[in-house]
């Protein structure tokens, strides 16, 4: 499990600009995708979920969601997606929104009571979603996503529409979730505070490309390998006559 990786390479034209992004990161902890607005962060995240179709591959651990041969439709991927603005279904109550996700999660066990407790949702369950504040909505959206038992959580600037107070309340909740749930998170943000609080590693995106010094990219890839794989690589390099 520890050497599972998220292996993404996507390119194509969508949302008005060209995206050409490839990276491999460990399938654990929080990976922030950081960049100015218009850098293609949302497009990249949508393409990973399958909401926008680009060419390339998306592999999450053992799962292949997209490669040259196949494209798994969004509703068959165990992906959790938290949208930038509130995305609750308005014809359902808070409880109804959570049930909607749980009913369709393929029968996976979810610690629903614990999540409701942790995200402080108990008093909101019977409410209509249009009576909720921005922070409450995003907490419900987060819980709903987790009720769907995802293998990876994609979060698209989930706190950008919230005020400082609501943000300060939710950030620790997300941090705790990623620690406890062993759920890899790709977290899109342009907010340095959120990235610093949450991220285990940071990918910078500009003009549709992951920009990083070659060394940093290389070390990111090394991070993704198991000790055995690193040793094998090193041995192969030595055999090939590379002197360190």
């Amino acid at each position: 499990m520890t050497d599972a990786v998220i292996d993404i390479a996507l390119n194509g034209h969508a949302g008005g600009f060209d995206l050409n992004a490839a990276f491999i990161v460990p399938a654990q902890g929080v990976t922030a995708i950081w960049g100015a607005s218009g850098a293609g962060k949302t497009t990249l995240l949508r393409a990973i979920a399958g909401l926008t179709r680009l060419t390339g591959h998306v592999r999450i651990g053992e799962q292949v969601w997209q490669d040259d041969r196949e494209f798994v439709p969004v509703h068959r991927r165990r992906v959790g997606y938290v949208f930038q603005e509130a995305s609750l279904l308005p014809h359902l109550t808070v409880r109804g929104n959570l049930d909607f996700a749980q009913k369709r999660n393929g029968g996976h066990a979810v610690e629903t009571d614990r999540l409701i407790d942790r995200l402080k949702l108990a008093p909101l369950l019977a409410r209509k979603v249009d009576t909720l504040s921005g922070g409450e909505r995003q907490r419900v959206a987060l819980a709903r996503t987790l009720f769907s038992a995802p293998e990876i959580l994609l979060m698209d600037e989930p706190l950008s529409s919230l005020d400082g107070e609501a943000k300060a309340e939710i950030v620790p909740m997300i941090a705790a979730l990623s620690r406890d749930a062993a759920l890899p998170i790709l977290y899109v943000s342009h907010d340095a505070y959120e990235v610093e609080r949450l991220a285990d590693r940071v990918l910078r995106l500009a003009k549709g490309r992951i920009i990083d010094t070659p060394d940093a990219a290389f070390s990111t890839q090394l991070d993704a390998l198991s000790p055995a794989q690193v040793r094998a690589l090193a041995e192969a390099a030595l055999k090939a006559g590379i002197r360190v």
Partner: peptide, 26 residues
């Protein structure tokens, strides 16, 4: 948006039509 949301919650297109589109368009 509601269709994107429903798909990421693993509702099939037909399921989405009946459980999201119809009630929202009542």
């Amino acid at each position: 948006r509601p269709f994107d949301v429903a798909a990421t919650l693993r509702a099939s297109p037909l399921d989405t039509f009946f459980s999201v589109a119809l009630p929202m368009a009542r």
